[in-house]
Design a protein around this nucleic acid. Structure first.
Lengths: 332, 332
DNA sequence: TTGTAAGCGTTATCAC
DNA sequence: GTGATAACGCTTACAA
């Protein structure tokens, strides 16, 4: 069932069929109708490979994330795909499982499919892995200011969220505030810690080293970190976490210790994952607008395919979402 | 940078370059090395569209799910992609958002990309939407016995899980057992209800109509349903839910009512989503092995591309996972 | 072991 | 408005 077959049956040339397919105005309505009829009758579907080969563009974008099992990413993927679908662009999606080696092979496979652009929405990015795309396909990164100028980037700021969180806690009477940090070789985790510490100092709150514990970014890491914090001679009355997953672990640790959130300890997460509002108590957290990031990344790529120069997107801002895991400091 | 360029620089024909690219044994090692050298130097990447156009296969599968935001699906996608990647097959993935219309358009777009097979892992499937694939591309469905014979299918049984769950509850002393069902026009929800009811009767437990409440399959639906159950003159001491999301809602409802799980009410979910073990108390639930489903679906498609006939996969079994949301019935 | 050349199904250019 | 035809980049008989 190729275009020739359609042409023959409609008694026109393949060129005309192609024109109908692509909505060219230079076809008499009557001819067009006849062709569309045949197409419907034959249940004809054009071959995208032939099309892509000919026109040089695939109407397809690549999307690479760190880990689809991490609830941070599904919304990002969804939003990206939704934007793409609106423009008739398909998305081929892969994940690296946090492995830079895999990022490189993902990139290669996407270049082979000659995608028109690649969104690299991983938390970590290495220069080498990006090499393959060079001069071949536009790239957009998430929150990787280090590559500004070379590639497109969707910048994200954390400070607003932290400031709002700390002001919220102070209003509730908290001054002893701890932090569950992430591995320091994890650039986004590192930045979150720094921005938290900066926000603390701005509000004249003291950053105590023994109230900062590092976790592995997963639930069990948060549980471990919270246990550590609770074992200190004096325990903070409120704890912020680098991400929601560890905040959930913290919730568990508090519960296992026979204490209650927020009555005994207040906890604030980061990301605003869908689960944040599914647990008891619902998690107060700092929202990282993932759908917005995805939409910006997509627009940036579209702009790139139209030949725009590399520009920085508008910065994406974080903000506090108050739920049930924060409360008045306990009188002591 | 096409194959001609490589051929010219390596002083061979395009045929030889192609042979090297595809690992043909009929190339002298020395020639092959020279070609590989040039390929590396030019950073040459073959064009998959041209290749697919020529050979008629794309080394690409389609994967369609209901809703990537539903935590049921990410693992399914991951497992499917992992299997595919091992064989050098890319996956183009879409989701229908539970809309049969969208299923049809997803199918169409995948046929246009001439994928070699499509896995339709949605909870609902309509005949019409599948039409487009007919005679064009092999299909595998998830848990859709209605299409047996026509398309491949990965069958899933629920009864083992329900039997184990009810035996578990009975051992804890529960005989007053309620159920949070899903919309009855949702075929999998309907089957879960029926299989639960059957399991109840087998164990001589009575199915009370006023202890069965329908929810919308989301968290808020479970919360609503649980509130309803708690408002009955006598409330069941244990409740099973059609899925984990509604079980989480039930957890919230119990908590808001000032009662505790499992001391006052035991709750059992269905699916074993990753979140099931992230909440407090951790959710006792019936595991639906999603990775296994994905792996079977993938193998089935591979078999199909090799020209196998339509066969039924082995049945995938459910089983109980005991965690913290079930406990001894309260003495009354 | 290597080269030549046809053709996969489109679209775009140029005629008419 | 419509038709003929040459690419697009690759694989694969078939020839050498």
């Amino acid at each position: 069932m190729d275009i020739q077959e359609v042409a023959k049956r409609a008694k026109v040339s393949t060129a005309t069929v192609s024109r109908v397919l692509n909505g060219s105005p230079n076809v008499r309505e009557k001819t067009s109708a006849r062709v569309r009829n045949v197409i419907a009758k034959l249940n004809y579907v054009p071959n995208t490979h032939a099309r892509s080969l000919r026109v040089g563009r695939a109407r397809m974008f690549g999307l690479i994330v760190s880990d689809i099992n991490n609830p941070f990413f599904p919304e990002l993927i969804d939003a990206f795909q939704t934007s793409a679908a609106e423009q008739g662009i398909d998305v081929i999606f892969m994940h690296t499982n946090y492995d830079p080696k895999r990022l490189e092979s993902c990139m290669r496979r996407m270049v082979e499919r000659s995608v028109d652009g690649i969104a690299v929405m991983t938390s970590e990015v290495e220069q080498a892995a990006l090499q393959i795309a060079h001069e071949r396909v536009p790239l957009v990164l998430m929150n990787q200011p280090a590559f500004a100028g070379e590639h497109r980037n969707v910048p994200v700021e954390y400070s607003t969220g932290f400031r709002e969180a700390l002001e919220h806690l102070r209003l509730l009477g908290h001054t002893n505030i701890g932090f569950i940090s992430g591995p320091s070789d994890f650039s986004s985790a590192k930045r979150r810690y720094q921005d938290w510490a900066t926000a603390m100092r701005r509000l004249k709150l003291s950053v105590r080293k023994d109230w900062v514990v590092t976790g592995n970014m997963r639930v069990d890491g948060g549980e471990y970190a919270m246990r550590e914090l609770m074992s200190r001679e004096t325990c903070p009355t409120a704890v912020l976490s680098t991400n929601d997953l560890m905040a959930l672990g913290a919730l568990q640790a508090v519960s296992h210790a026979g204490l209650r959130v927020p009555q005994d300890i207040s906890i604030i997460g980061f990301d605003d994952l869908p689960i944040a509002s599914m647990v008891v108590p619902q998690l107060t957290t700092i929202e990282l607008p993932r759908r917005e990031i995805a939409a910006r990344a997509f627009s940036s790529l579209v702009e790139a395919t139209r030949g725009g120069i590399v520009t920085e997107c508008d910065i994406v801002r974080t903000k506090l979402v108050v739920r049930g895991s924060t409360g008045l400091v306990r009188c002591s």
